[in-house]
Design a protein around this nucleic acid. Structure first.
Lengths: 208, 208
DNA sequence: TGGGGCTTGTGAAAGTATTCACAAAGTAGG
DNA sequence: CCTACTTTGTGAATACTTTCACAAGCCCCA
């Protein structure tokens, strides 16, 4: 199967969110033009994105909201629960652990880890902070799908090594470093400093 | 001046971080190949990225660490302080307000806003939470450069409208919605649900 | 001072992604 | 059932990004 561009997958997420809203507002069909308007793209782009995965619409009418919702969920692999652990119980880690945008989309936070023995054992929202040195043992008995990395830059690569050794195949990285992982491990990075620098660049280059 | 690709600006951020590390480790020059290795790209890409802005290296030798550091700082507009406000004193907003990765890079958090009167008046780290309805008045006396939006999805577009009316020209959006803004306002979005869905997609498509 | 060995800077080529534009297929209303 | 209208799905065209490949420039050492 042909490799799908990252940008396409991101847009599918956006379409999905709009479809969920449409469903709540009682709409039964949407056109590619409506999806485009709310997704900040063009109708041709919407149709092309969907066409990589099949043909979901009815000519002259558009797309059935519930059907397209299910199709995109399926494409994105959201038809199941994913077990997630958060590594790092600092400010960002705890904010993420308590964030409740994950649960409804099938991402289940099963544990939070830290190396600081002062934090180990405390609990938030029913999730106990566990000792990161236990991670390999824990994952052997309860496998997880995704690790969210919220540790300081210095410790990030080392934490990744241990997670990968323990069999983790997907990492969402919040540490401001470029992680090195084997090719069979998927990584996405969220880097706030980088985003702010992007805005700084835009503001500056406009002034010129 | 030709429009520079987003991907190029992001890579400049990565190069900058590596250069700062190199400087601390006492290196005086780096080659495009070294920058590439740590930035997860190729040496040709590094040279091409830099070539959009000028010619910074010495053939046969590489790039002077301090000189290239300064040049990239300049390009990214980091030669000055940027005033930042955080909108939304929920979990993510407070985590961001206390996060100290911004300060050293010239991003100065001058205020946190919320609409919840129970939160207004409390303070973290010396930053008082202010009433969001004051924002237009505040910005008239102390202009800010960047607003970080950390409010729930429902309130996001409305908060943006008010920020834009108050003259904000750059927004870093953490709400899981596609914001609509005038063309002279720069927006970057960080959407954790979308990133997790991207990982979900990759994990699923590999299994197939 | 001259030659060998590196590394940059950059056009040209290759590879990706987006937009265009239109036939095909459906709806709706008489 | 037929005609007018709408919207999809998709090759082809365009635009954008990355990679290739090599001349030009600089350092170092003999």
């Amino acid at each position: 199967m042909k490799r799908i561009a990252d940008s396409t997958v991101r847009r599918l997420s956006v379409y999905l969110r709009f479809l969920e809203g449409s469903s709540q507002r009682g709409l039964t069909t949407v056109s590619s033009a409506e999806l485009a308007r709310h997704g900040g793209t063009t109708s041709a782009q919407v149709r092309k994105d969907l066409s990589f995965f099949g043909s979901f619409g009815k000519r002259g009418l558009g797309y059935s909201v519930p059907e397209l919702t299910n199709s995109i969920r399926d494409i994105l692999g959201l038809g199941r629960e994913w077990n997630v652990v958060i590594v790092g119980a600092g400010k960002i880690g705890t904010a993420l652990a308590q964030y409740d945008g994950f649960r409804p989309r099938g991402f289940h936070v099963v544990a939070v880890y830290d190396t600081d023995s002062g934090k180990v054992g405390t609990r938030w929202d029913g999730i106990v902070v566990r000792d990161f040195s236990q991670v390999a043992r824990d994952l052997a008995s309860q496998p997880i799908d995704i690790a969210v990395l919220a540790v300081p830059a210095e410790g990030a690569q080392d934490a990744v090594r241990r997670l990968v050794d323990a069999g983790v195949k997907a990492i969402l990285n919040f540490a401001p470093v470029q992680l090195k992982v084997p090719p069979d491990v998927a990584v996405r990075s969220v880097n706030m400093a980088m985003e702010l620098e992007g805005l700084s660049y835009e503001l500056s280059s406009r002034a010129r």
